[in-house]
Amino acid sequence: MKNFRDSEHLLRFAFLFAMLFVLFLVARHFVVPKSFGEYGHYRGAAIAEMAAPQPHFAGQSACEACHTDIAAKKKTGMHSGVHCEACHGPLARHAADPASVQPLKLDTAVLCVRCHAASAAKPKNFPQVAAADHSGGLACETCHHPHSPAIQGGGAK
C-alpha cells in the first residue's frame, strides 16, 4: 500500500502518455484515407486518379481513323514510322471534335532541319543535310513531300 501511494504519481505521467496514444489512434482512424493499403503502402485510389487525366496527343490510330488517304500515302514512304503528331503537334481536341481545332500550317524550314540538319553526333545511317548547301535556299517541300519524302520523278508532286 505504501509502495502504491508513493509511486502513484508515476501512473499520472503514464496516464498522460496513454491518453495521447488513444487520441492518436482515434485521429488515425479518421484521417487515414480509406483506400490506403489497398494494393500496398499507398493510397490505392491514387492509381485511378493518375489514370484519369485527358491525353493531349490523340495517338496515331486516332489520326488514321479519318485521314485514311494520308495514312496510305505515308505507309509507302520513309516517314512511315513518324507519327502524325510528331510534326503536327498535340491534337486530341481535334480528334474529339475536328471542327474545334485545326492543325496549324507547318513551317518546313524549321521543322525539317530539327531532325535532318547535319551533325556528327547523329547516327551515320540517318539522312542529314547541311541545309544551306543542300537546297540553295529552296523550301524543303519544293522537292520532298513531307508525307513521303523520297524524290519521285525528279521534283515536287
Binding site: R5, E8, H9, L10
Partner: peptide, 18 residues
C-alpha cells in the same frame, strides 16, 4: 505536478530509481 502532492522520502526514492 500533474496533481501529485507526495514529497515523502520514499516517493522521492522511487523517483530516483525510476
Amino acid at each position: 505536478s500533474l496533481g501529485s502532492n507526495n514529497t515523502s522520502e520514499h516517493s522521492l526514492a522511487i523517483d530516483e530509481r525510476a
